[in-house]
Nucleic acid binder design. Structure first.
Length: 461
DNA sequence: GGAACTCGCCAC
DNA sequence: AAACGTGGCGAGTTCC
């Protein structure tokens, strides 16, 4: 497969983007090194304690009996051999190469208490060795300078390394706090993060122009994910403020809608959704799964509507998928089929932004690349423009980096209001004015952190 | 002793 | 009909 910048504007975007990102790299992000060192010690102590618990167990003795001095509780090869060959447990899942899997999902299904400890050790070591250690290693005079690359990714997204600034924990609150507590604004400054919400959905709609999706994007009161949650859970999911309703919406969004857009299918979606609401992949009984607002459980509800096990749920999702593409978003589906047919005839396709992709690609790639690419270019155009303005107006504010559909800034508090206004103008007005193919509204949310505070959201309530 | 591989896991 | 897109990186392991 080959990608090319086929227009002067496409070339210019990459050229200017590289320069703007180089300025972000040079600026760097302030880092609290004493905190990193101290937190690494805390994590090491916890790891040592947990390791001791494992090595004192009967399970470990069995392991040691096989591997002797070579025994290593970090070795998944050894663990796989012990579990599935020595103890003859039936592996719930295989890896790519056919070995019994030892990932989190698999180990948590096996009833050996030491496996829970091993998972906890893995988690703590990940934080210590992948994040805090990398921050300290890359520290130069109190700042890290992650690289942002525009030449490595097939779809024209960016990548980041040394350290990778684009995969610092966020969803797991504890992991997020431990890692992001190390990253600070300049003295007297504050961090803000501007996030394009649902950018790839918006950009895909510029291609397919599905009227139902357009209606969702143009009507702020409508909520696609809430509607999908109602259908998937056969439940009146109405209020995001109720925790169980919110969870069902999250499960629909991240377990069904987005994976479907990437080309996934209902069988995988069923597994994903069950993980979100803590239902097993077998028979369901009353009291199973996440708790609802009235104290009942999600399994009670599913049983009451005739879904009594995982396989019933898979069949239900098959129907939801069919309705999703052949009824709800049928124009989107027609666009996908036509787009792929056109690619098959020509051997290439063009993005809105003046780039072409040619060569052998799978169906899902042909559908995903133009969306991911053009969405990424929207963020890059915005970043270039904001960088230009901040230099021209001599702001004491810096662009620090970007995470695919968001940009992180280090802002002088006196400039905050002006910076926020400028971000919203550039992303929501100037960008669609410059690129006429953007025919849907774009939404940007700006998270503001406190002055002199790390990259950790202030606790609500 | 380094290159290249597998596996697992973080982000969007 | 087929069946999840893009990365970086650490630890363990194997190959040369």
């Amino acid at each position: 497969m080959k990608v090319e910048a086929n227009t002067p504007a496409a070339y210019e975007l990459i050229h200017k983007g590289a320069l703007a990102l180089a300025r972000a790299e040079r600026a760097g992000i302030r880092i609290d090194i004493p905190y990193c060192q101290q937190q690494k010690k805390v994590l090491t102590k916890q790891v040592t304690e947990l390791t001791k618990q494992v090595t004192e167990s009967k399970f470990y003795h069995r392991w040691r009996h096989i591997y002797g001095d070579k025994t290593n509780i970090d070795s998944n090869n050894q663990l796989s051999h012990i579990l599935y060959k020595v103890m003859k447990i039936e592996a719930p899942k295989q890896t790519e190469s056919g070995q019994g899997s030892t990932d989190e999902d698999t180990l948590s299904q096996i009833d050996i208490p030491e496996l829970k400890i091993i998972l906890e050790i893995r988690k703590l070591k990940k934080l210590r060795d992948t994040y805090l250690d990398a921050f300290e290693r890359e520290n130069y005079e109190g700042y890290i300078h992650p690289f942002f690359n525009l030449h490595t990714v097939k779809t024209f997204r960016s990548s980041s390394d040394s350290p990778n600034f684009q995969n610092i924990p966020k969803r797991d609150k504890e992991a997020m706090t431990i890692c992001r507590r190390a990253l600070y604004p300049r003295p007297g400054h504050q961090l803000i993060e501007a996030d394009f919400s649902g950018l790839e959905v918006s950009i895909s709609t510029c291609y397919h122009r599905d009227p139902v999706m357009l209606a969702y994007l143009n009507n702020k009161k409508s909520d696609m994910h809430l509607d999908m949650a109602k259908q998937i859970f056969i439940y009146e999911v109405l209020n995001k403020a109720i925790p169980s309703n919110y969870r069902m919406r999250q499960a629909s969004k991240n377990g069904f809608v987005f994976p479907q857009f990437y080309g996934d299918w209902y069988r995988n979606n069923a597994v994903g959704i069950c993980e979100w609401v803590q239902l097993p992949q077998g028979k369901w009984k009353k009291g199973m799964g996440m708790e609802m607002e009235d104290g009942s459980h999600i399994a009670d509800h599913f049983i009451s509507v005739g879904i009594k096990c995982f396989d019933d749920f898979v069949e239900h999702l098959k129907g939801v998928e069919d309705d999703f593409w052949n009824n709800r978003f049928k124009v989107y589906k027609q666009w996908k089929d036509a787009w792929v047919a056109k690619y098959q005839a020509k051997g290439s396709f063009a993005m809105f932004t003046g780039f072409t992709c040619s060569g052998v690609m799978r169906r899902n790639e042909v559908i995903n690349y133009p969306v991911q690419g053009a969405a990424s270019h929207c963020k890059l155009w915005s970043l270039i423009e904001l960088d230009r303005i901040m230099l021209a107006e001599k702001w004491d504010t810096y662009i620090l980096g970007e995470i695919h559909d968001s940009i992180l800034f280090d802002v002088l508090p006196e400039e905050l209001d002006h910076v926020k206004d400028t971000i919203l103008r550039v992303t929501c007005k100037d960008l669609p004015a410059a690129w006429k193919w953007i025919t849907v509204p774009l939404n940007v949310e700006i998270d503001v952190y406190d002055v002199d505070a790390p990259w950790v959201p202030r606790d609500k309530e």
